[in-house]
Amino acid sequence: MKNDIDLLKKQLKGNIQKLIDSGDLKDARQLIDQYKDIDSDDAEAYSMDAVILIMENKFDEAEEVLREGLDIDENNFDLNYNFGYVYKQNQNFEEALWYYKKALDNCSNKNMVSDIDKIIRKIKSEHNISAIVDKKKIVFLIRVMTSLYGI
Rank of each mutant, 00 (worst) to 15 (best):
L141W: 01
V144M: 07
D71W: 01
K110E: 14
V86C: 10
W98P: 00
D71A: 11
N128K: 12
F77R: 04
D105I: 05
N109Y: 03
Y87S: 13
I123A: 08
V86Y: 07
S108H: 14
F93N: 01
A96S: 06
K122E: 15
K102Y: 02
F93W: 08
S114N: 11
N80E: 05
W98R: 10
D105K: 05
N92H: 03
I123N: 09
S130N: 14
K136Y: 05
L104I: 04
N128T: 05
H127W: 01
S130E: 15
N128M: 11
I123H: 10
E74S: 15
N75L: 07
S130G: 10
I119N: 10
V86T: 11
S114C: 02
L70T: 06
G84H: 06
Y85R: 14
D117V: 05
L97I: 00
K124A: 05
M112F: 09
N82F: 13
E126V: 09
I119D: 12
S108P: 02
L70H: 05
N106L: 07
I129A: 08
N80G: 06
V133T: 11
A131Q: 11
Y100F: 15
N109A: 02
I142L: 10
I142D: 06
I129H: 06
L70K: 14
N92E: 11
S114K: 15
D134P: 06
N92S: 07
N111T: 11
N90E: 13
Q89P: 00
N82D: 08
Q89N: 09
A103N: 07
N111H: 08
S114W: 02
D73K: 05
G84R: 07
D73F: 01
R121I: 07
N80A: 05
D134M: 02
R121Y: 09
I132W: 00
K101A: 06
Y99Q: 05
L79W: 01
G84L: 07
S147R: 09
K101E: 09
N76G: 00
F93G: 04
G84M: 09
Y81N: 15
D78K: 15
E95A: 12
I120C: 08
K118D: 11
N76S: 03
F83G: 03
I123Q: 10
D78C: 10
I120F: 09
K88L: 04
I72Y: 02
D73W: 02
V139H: 02
G69Y: 03
I116H: 11
V86Q: 10
Q91T: 11
D134V: 06
S147Q: 12
V86W: 05
K137Y: 12
V144R: 09
K136I: 11
N106G: 04
D105H: 01
N106D: 07
E74A: 13
K102I: 06
N82S: 09
D134S: 06
I120Y: 08
C107E: 03
